[in-house]
Design a protein around this nucleic acid. Structure first.
Length: 459
RNA sequence: GUGGUUGUAGCUCAGUUGGUUAGAGCAUCAGAUUGUGGUUCUGAGGGUCGUCGGUUCGAACCCGAUCUUCCACCCCA
């Protein structure tokens, strides 16, 4: 029996009205990326499972969309398939006989794979951008989809902090171009977090510690301490961490008190130095309205970051981070290419869309693709209009001729609904005089003149 | 994955202890206005009440399952 067709949970169809707005976001981002010298690449939707597993931590592995191997019903190893499947029911495991491919989880790890694989074609430092969908087998919520677009910029083969500085400038420029001015760019450095763990004498508990203090905002000091205890962090270490929770003041003040805290950790001090350098120089160059904040509690779970960590939050909107990233010193090392430091960020296009939609930040002009609509008064008038429309298009003006000579109110309404700014009327009067009548739909004013008069008005 | 929540017209939502033909606003379409939209007036169309099953003389309403939405945890764009 036929039931309504549907699409998988967490995926969406995009109607034209939505697509125009999405494309506005993509093209804004792309334009900025290119202005900073980044070049586009694409990689396949699916990667070998072995490329992805183990790169995102245990949680990440669970969120991979694995692809079942094709034609297993034709296999002559059915016993092996059965026993592997039985084992998979008991615990998470990857068995190549069952699944050897997965949809990509992000764009960074496939990029590292790409760099290693194509290293002889690339010249370093290599700056690339990549705008493609990624997939996560997460439980969907608001702002959390199973298929969504990431817009990544990364540079590999350079450990210069100039890139960290430029990434902050890129974030600022993209978001202010989109009208997202009330945002906070949070910065931290993994070396600072390592230093903290070191000073507390719990170096090997780094992940547990960072994950716990990341939740400070949410669960408070007591909650963090409780979680630290549960994770087996010693009382002594927890006590030592106390000053961290009291950090406040300007970025400089926070860094100063932290450098005292970290004075015995070479790594920690290096982190402070890097972060100070980035903050100082970003300030010198200057950004728009974005707040830039050093946040010690900012810890991203990804276990490949080694230096700078970035995260961007839109203020006054209930939405997770809209951009995130960091520096990874040895991601290509996992694929056999040592000594290639990389750093990059990723804009979450779908979340940016949701935030912009909620705050009504899409300009009307985004929706107005057609600049001129020619009213259709009949066949002779229609072809006369089409000739002029053709001239307009040669001048780069998007226009259309209404397809049939239905009553004018309907044609006007079409222009109005589509937010077309100018309507041209050519009836027998205009055909005789060689002039055209055109109306400015915003002001309601109507003029008579040559086609060039309208063109100059539009430009 | 665990726990909870939601679903009624294209959209936002009413719908009484279970009781004739399920309503409103907005949107759509038609007319008032045969060369003038966005304002106004009149009218019309549009629903298997998420889906499947159960209880009942009778279900939008009660029960079960399933899907979906949103929320918390986990994690994250």
């Amino acid at each position: 029996m036929s039931s309504k067709p549907s699409i998988p949970k967490g995926t969406r169809d995009f109607l034209p009205e939505v697509m125009v707005k999405r494309n506005y976001i993509f093209s804004t981002i792309r334009t900025v990326f290119e202005k900073y010298g980044f070049l586009p690449i694409e990689t396949p939707s699916m990667e070998n499972l072995s490329t992805l597993t183990g790169k995102y931590g245990e949680e990440g592995d669970q969120l991979l969309f694995k692809i079942l191997n094709s034609r297993i019903h034709e296999s002559n190893k059915k016993d092996q398939l059965r026993s592997e499947f039985e084992l998979s029911l008991e615990k998470s495991r990857n068995s190549e006989i069952l699944t050897e491919k997965a949809l990509r989880y992000d764009l960074t790890v496939p990029f590292a794979r790409f760099v290693v694989q194509n290293q002889n074609e690339l010249s370093f430092p290599f700056k690339r951008y990549q705008i493609q969908p990624v997939w996560r087998a997460d439980k969907p919520q608001k702002g959390r989809y199973r298929e969504f677009f990431q817009c990544d910029v990364d540079v590999v083969g350079s450990d210069s902090l100039i890139h960290e500085i430029e990434l902050v400038l890129i974030i600022d420029e993209v978001l202010s171009k989109l009208g997202l001015t009330d945002v906070t760019i949070k910065l931290n450095n993994l070396k600072i977090l390592s230093g903290i763990a070191e000073v507390c004498g719990e170096k090997e508990k780094l992940v547990a510690i960072t994950v716990a203090i990341d939740k400070l905002d949410k669960i408070g000091i007591d909650g963090v301490i409780k979680e630290l205890r549960e994770k087996g962090v010693s009382e002594n270490a927890i006590q030592k961490m106390d000053p961290l929770f009291a950090l406040n003041g300007s970025n400089e003040e926070k860094l100063r008190s932290l450098s005292t805290f970290l004075e015995l950790s070479e790594t920690g001090l290096k982190g402070i130095e890097e972060l100070s350098y980035v903050l100082e120089n970003v300030n010198k160059i200057g950004v728009g309205k974005a707040n830039i904040e050093f946040d010690v509690t900012l810890a991203r779970g990804l276990n490949y970051y080694t230096g700078a960590i970035f995260e961007v939050k839109a203020n006054n909107v209930q939405m997770g981070s809209i951009t995130g990233g960091g520096r990874y010193d040895d991601l290509t090392g996992l694929f056999g290419l040592k000594g290639m430091s990389g750093v990059g960020i990723s804009f979450g296009a779908d979340r940016i869309y949701d935030v912009m939609n909620e705050l009504n930040l899409f300009p009307d002009s985004v929706l107005a693709s057609t600049k001129v609509l020619f009213i259709n008064f009949g066949e002779a008038e229609q072809f006369y209009s089409m000739k002029i429309a053709s001239d307009f298009r040669k001048k780069g003006i998007a226009c259309e001729v209404y397809p049939s000579s239905v009553k004018m109110a309907k044609q006007m309404k079409y222009a109005n609904d589509k937010k077309v700014p100018f309507v041209v009327m050519i009836g027998s009067k205009e055909m005789d005089s060689g002039l055209i009548t055109f109306k400015d739909m915003n002001s309601g004013e109507q003029f008579s003149g040559k086609p060039e008069d309208l063109i100059s008005r539009i430009k």
